[in-house]
């Protein structure tokens, strides 16, 4: 029982950055923009959060700083792809490289310094519930924020007028434009939201997951978040399932190793990816459903007729 709780708490920590970055990218892609720069925005968020938390002593200011830094890189991406209509794939890849390089330069004086760990907030009474208490109600603010984000995004996209507008922009940019919707403005807002989410995910890494700054500390998590969006077929609630499944298999394989089952570790390490592929295959069996969910204008630059 205690072991199960400990394992699940670790899974939550491992899944949270993936969940947050993926939910942000989901909104971006729903608006028709493909931003492959998640890794770059995440790592810049991690370094900014660490630096600000270290200098001010407040991890909460660090979180704000991380989100701002992620949004700033996203703004750059927006200027290039939305205003100047550059190729989204190439710009996104460049953004990742920029983020990794820039974060290394900014972070150099912070390497090896003790971090400011984000402390868990216990929710009174609820935290005392056996089993579920420590898992759900003894977490740090970013974990709570991740739950709220998913619920908020699901509600926004499918229950509000603004959400409908955003999805229409992603599905048919020309129709939306004809109806007088400002495609570019909506996409800017979505891209900035995605950047702030990636920054928040980075802040989780450098303040809660491993409270320190090391170069490349995202270690590919931005790419996994991107894959999770496809995995979830652009549905917010499925992102939770995807992120937690990935986290569970990642942590589970470490435990399997420590228990000494004698299964080759290389095979175990590839399990999270194998699981992701398996689910993708199962999901995409129904082509019609996939088509319905995929934003039809995804990745296409929009240049309005003048």
């Amino acid at each position: 029982m205690e072991l199960a709780v400990a394992v699940i708490v670790t899974i939550v920590t491992a899944a949270t950055p993936l969940l947050i970055a993926a939910i942000g990218e989901l909104v971006v892609e729903r608006s028709g923009v493909l931003n492959l720069g998640v890794e770059g925005m995440m790592v810049i968020g991690a370094v900014a959060a660490f630096a600000i938390a270290h200098n001010t002593g407040s991890p909460y200011l660090g979180i704000v700083g991380g989100m701002a830094a992620g949004a700033f890189l996203a703004l750059l991406f927006g200027l290039l792809t939305l205003t100047l209509a550059t190729n989204q794939v190439a710009t996104g890849l460049a953004l990742t490289l920029l983020g990794l390089g820039l974060s290394g330069a900014i972070g150099e004086p912070y390497v090896g310094l003790p971090g400011t760990k984000l402390q868990p907030i216990e929710i009174p009474l609820l935290a005392d519930i056996p089993f579920f208490g420590p898992i759900l109600f003894k977490q740090d603010i970013i974990v709570y924020a991740s739950f709220a984000l998913v619920a908020g995004v699901a509600w926004f996209l499918f229950r509000t007028r603004a959400g409908l507008t955003l999805r229409s922009v992603g599905d048919s940019q020309t129709s939306a434009h004809t109806l007088g919707i400002s495609v570019i403005r909506i996409r800017y807002l979505a891209v900035l939201f995605g950047g702030a989410c990636a920054g928040l995910a980075g802040a989780q890494l450098s303040l809660a997951y491993t409270p320190q700054w090391v170069e490349n500390m995202t270690a590919g998590r931005g790419w996994i978040a991107l894959a999770l969006v496809v995995f979830a077929s652009w549905r917010p609630l499925r992102v939770i399932a995807g992120a937690y499944l990935f986290g569970a298999v990642t942590i589970g394989q470490l435990h399997a190793q420590a228990l000494g089952f004698g299964i080759p570790s290389q095979l175990l390490s590839s399990l999270p990816y194998l699981a992701t592929i398996a689910v993708l295959v199962i999901i995409s069996r129904d082509r019609r459903l996939t088509l319905v969910n995929t934003p039809a204008s995804l990745g296409k630059p929009f240049v309005p007729d003048r």
């Binding site: 400990a6 394992v7 670790t10 090391v214 270690a219 998590r221 435990h255």
Partner: peptide
């Protein structure tokens, strides 16, 4: 526990937690 990486702070931390939990 093999993490199949020389340097991945997150994974190393996860491995450490898994070992301590056991």
């Amino acid at each position: 526990v093999w993490v199949n990486s020389w340097f991945d702070a997150g994974k190393e931390a996860d491995a450490a937690k898994a070992l301590i939990d056991q």
